[in-house]
Design a binder for these strands. Structure first.
Lengths: 214, 214
DNA sequence: GGCGAATGTGGACACTGTCAATATAGCGAA
DNA sequence: TTCGCTATATTGACAGTGTCCACATTCGCC
C-alpha cells in the first residue's frame, strides 16, 4: 500500500507518526470489513499498533472517532458527485448523473454510508457532531447548486429561484436519493431484476418530472 | 395504563406472566427515553423485574429483542397509514395523506423509526430478521395499493399498471418519504420555518407531479 | 541542555453480552 | 395424588469493553 519512499520515508512527526490518521484509516477498514461499527475501540488501537488508551489523545470518545470516519465519507461523496457532473451543461442530465453517483457511492460503501447518517454519532446534548453536520451541508450545497442553475437556465420551474422553493426542491431531491440509497442498501428495495444504477436512473427521472417547467 | 380488570386480573400464565411482551415494552420505553438502543439487555431485564438471563428464554440475542421492537414499529406505522387514508377516494389525496402520516410517525417516534431500519438488526449470515422484513413488506404493500388504484382509476400514469413500472414508482415514493423522514429526524433537513407537516405535504405533491397522467 | 506540553503506556473499575449449571413452577399421564 | 417432563427463571462465571487515572516517554522550543 505504500508509495515507494523517495529516500527513507519521512521521519515520523511524533511518537507514532500520524496516529490520528492511522486510527481513522483503521476504523474505516473495520467498518468496511465488518459492515458495522460494533468493533471495539481497542481493536482499532491494536490495528494501529498502539496501546488501548492512545486513541484518547486524539479523540474524546469512540463516537468522536466514528464521527471523523463519517466526515471523510461525506467528503468522498461530494468528490464523486462533483466528478460526475463536471463539464455537463444540461441541468436535468446533471441532476440525474449526480443522483446516480450518489446512490452508487452508497451501494459501494454501504456500511460507511450508513455510518454517515447513524444515530451512533448523536449526543443527547450536542446532537450531531459539528464536523459531520458541516460535511453533510457541503454535500447538500452541491445538489442545491445543480437545481438552482437549472432553474436559472429555465430548465426547471422558475419558482425554484425563490429561496424557500429551492430549499424544498433540494430537500425533495436529497430525500429521494437518500431514501433510495438506504432502502437499496438494506435490501428492502423490492427491485425486480434491475441493477441499482438503472433503478437510480429511473427514480431520478421520475423526480425530475416534478421539477420540470411546464 | 391498565384497562380495569374485570375480576382480579388474569392469572399469570407462567412464572412471570407474559415476559416476552413485558420485555418488548420495556425495550421500547428505553428506546424512546434514551433515543437510542445502546442500553443494556440487563437494564431491560431489570425493568421487567427479572434476572439478567431471563430474556434468553424468549430472545436469542439482544438483537433479537430489538428486532421484535422494530417489527412492532412497522405494524404501528401501517396502522397509521391505513387510518389516514380510510374512506378517501382520490388517489392523489390518498398518496399525500399517507406520506403525511408516514413522516409524522417518524418524526413523533424518531428513535423507534431509526431502529426499524437500523443495521443493528442485521446479521452477517441472515441479513435482516425475517419478522422485520415481513413487517416492512406489509407497509410497502399499502403504498403499492394506493398507487395501483390511482393508476387503475386513470389519475396516475397508466403505465403504472404494468408490474415493473409500478414497482419503480412505489420505490420512488417510499424512498422519498423514507429519506425525508430520516433527514428530518436527523435535523439535517434544512427546512426554513416550515413545520414537518407542511414540508411533507409539499414534497409529496412534488413527487405526485411525476406520477400524474399528462 | 532542559523544560513543559504533547503523546503513549499500563493498570484499574464497573459494566456488558452470553454461556453453563442449577433451581423452580406448571402440566399431562399414571 | 405422585411422577416426571418441559418451559421458565436464577445464580455464577468469563472474557471483553469504554473510560478514568497515574505514570513514562519523546518532541519542540527557550
Amino acid at each position: 500500500m505504500k508509495s515507494k519512499p523517495t529516500k527513507i520515508s519521512q521521519p515520523p512527526p511524533y511518537h507514532h507518526g500520524d496516529l490520528r490518521r492511522s486510527l481513522i484509516d483503521a476504523a474505516l477498514a473495520l467498518v468496511t470489513e465488518e459492515q458495522d461499527w460494533t468493533f471495539s475501540l481497542r481493536e482499532v488501537a491494536r490495528r494501529a499498533g498502539v496501546s488501548h488508551n492512545a486513541p484518547y489523545n486524539h479523540f474524546a470518545d469512540k463516537r468522536d472517532l466514528l464521527a471523523a470516519v463519517a466526515a471523510t465519507g461525506f467528503a468522498q461523496l461530494s468528490e464523486r458527485i462533483v466528478a460526475a457532473i463536471s463539464g455537463i451543461k444540461n441541468a436535468q442530465t446533471a441532476l440525474v448523473r449526480s443522483a446516480l453517483a450518489y446512490v452508487t457511492f452508497g451501494v459501494e460503501n454501504p456500511a460507511h454510508y450508513r455510518l454517515m447518517f447513524s444515530s451512533a454519532l448523536v449526543t443527547a446534548k450536542e446532537g450531531r457532531p459539528e464536523s459531520v453536520a458541516a460535511a453533510g451541508a457541503d454535500t447538500r450545497a452541491i445538489l442545491a447548486g445543480i437545481i438552482r442553475r437549472g432553474a436559472a437556465m429555465g430548465v426547471f420551474n422558475a419558482d425554484l429561484c425563490r429561496d424557500d422553493e429551492l430549499r424544498v426542491s433540494v430537500l425533495t431531491a436529497w430525500s429521494t436519493v437518500h431514501g433510495l440509497t438506504m432502502l437499496t442498501i438494506d435490501g428492502i428495495a423490492d427491485t425486480p431484476q434491475l441493477s441499482p444504477e438503472e433503478i437510480a436512473r429511473k427514480v431520478a427521472n421520475l423526480v425530475c418530472e416534478g421539477l420540470l417547467r411546464r
